[in-house]
């Protein structure tokens, strides 16, 4: 145990995801030794992120202001909506430059162990967005793990009466990889989802 303020910093840092007790201690001593202007910049940045950044009223992405950059963009199509778990998933999909529709962030996946059900996710907001029938295709881009699959199945059943075109991202082999490096589950999925080759 260290003296009061130092231990406080270590405890606070230790609560962050991905930071263990050793890591927290290392960061704390780094900050202690650092220039006070550097530390001031960090404090200001942290303050700003809490004060100015909010979540987009429409999609739930991080935004400065009422709506995020993507929801404000008039060049994007309103007919295709892509459902993701977290804002970081939007960043990943945006990097592909392949998708020109809009997003909807759920804020997680259904997981009863963690007490997360439909009410803890932005499902009601999604249903409201789908009401007016501008969306014709719903892409379920939740993670390909058990909780993500369960969330996708739940949403697909929920929107079924609306007659939308509901799709799910494909699972399979990574591009540029070798077959023999794929694990059995991935390879098995890739077999299930194989496609006809048009010639």
């Amino acid at each position: 145990m260290y003296e009061g303020p130092v231990q406080d910093v270590i405890d606070e840092l230790g609560r962050l995801p991905g930071v263990g007790p050793k890591g927290a201690q290392r960061i704390a001593f780094f900050l202690l030794a650092a220039d006070s202007t550097d530390v001031g910049r960090l404090i200001a940045a942290l303050q700003r992120v809490k004060d100015d950044v909010a979540f987009c009223k429409t999609c739930g992405n991080v935004a400065e202001g009422e709506q995020c950059r993507i929801c404000r963009d008039p060049r994007r199509g309103d007919d295709v909506l892509c459902v993701v778990e977290e804002p970081k998933d939007i960043v990943a999909i945006e990097r592909t430059n392949e998708f020109r529709g809009r997003y909807h962030v759920l804020g997680g996946a259904i997981s009863p162990i963690e007490g997360i059900g439909p009410d803890q996710l932005r499902v009601r907001e999604l249903m409201v967005r789908l009401q007016d029938a501008t969306v014709t295709e719903l892409i379920l881009a939740t993670n390909p793990n058990l909780e993500g699959e369960a969330t996708a199945t739940y949403l697909a059943r929920l929107v079924k009466p609306m007659g939308l075109n509901v799709t799910r991202l494909a699972s399979g082999l990574p591009v540029g990889g070798d077959l023999d490096y794929a694990d059995e589950v991935t390879l098995g999925r890739a077999f299930e989802g194989r496609r006809r080759v048009d010639s």
Binding site: I110, P112, G117, P118, D119, E149, A150, T153, Y154, R157
Partner: peptide, 12 residues
Amino acid sequence: GDLRTLDVWDGH
């Protein structure tokens, strides 16, 4: 009691 997602878990 919230059992809306139970059908989904049944399936899995």
